[in-house]
């Protein structure tokens, strides 16, 4: 892939459904238990309306790691598993809540391409997740080292 500064790679939008929020909530105790069975998480601001209201929110909001993982997913789709090689970096800040049923599009923008020895190159990226009005919800940066070509 020929990559130049300023180039943007965008995902198809995904709806931040209640189910997607709950999948993440339940994944945490399931992973922690590590016994091959599903475990229920919560109540949290991500899956329980009353709990979210009690915390001053108008409704449940997504865990920021959901959009972070969707950004990582776009990096992997765009560049392949070399993204996971040394050295790599991903930073995300959760600057606005993601409410139920908001369409979320993730975006990578190439900021710099540095040629490296041994036919490799280092990409510096701006990354973000935005809603259907273009409002940025999650914002950050990433760096990946890829084979050239």
């Amino acid at each position: 892939m020929d990559l130049l500064p300023g180039q943007e790679i965008r995902s198809a939008p995904r709806i931040m459904t209640r189910e997607r929020m709950r999948w993440y909530v339940d994944a945490l105790p399931t992973v922690e238990a590590n016994d091959g069975r599903i475990h229920r998480g919560g109540p949290t601001i991500h899956d329980d309306d009353d709990y979210a209201l009690g915390q001053g929110l108008p409704g449940i909001i997504a865990d920021g790691m959901v959009s972070t993982n969707w950004i990582l997913d776009l990096m992997l789709r765009a560049f392949g598993p070399a993204v996971l090689e040394d050295p790599g970096a991903l930073t995300t800040k959760f600057i606005a809540p993601v409410y139920e049923d908001v369409p979320v599009t993730t975006v990578l923008r190439v900021e710099a391409v540095a040629e490296l020895p041994e036919a490799r190159r280092r990409l510096t990226l701006k990354v973000w997740a935005e809603d259907d009005a273009g409002k940025v919800l999650t914002f950050g940066s990433a760096a990946v080292t890829l084979p050239r070509g």
Binding site: A89, L90, K93
Partner: peptide, 15 residues
């Protein structure tokens, strides 16, 4: 109070 995750900042050196 519920805590809220504000920033994720990771660097990896090998899979």
């Amino acid at each position: 109070n519920a805590r809220v995750h504000y920033c994720f900042d990771a660097r990896w050196h090998a899979p």
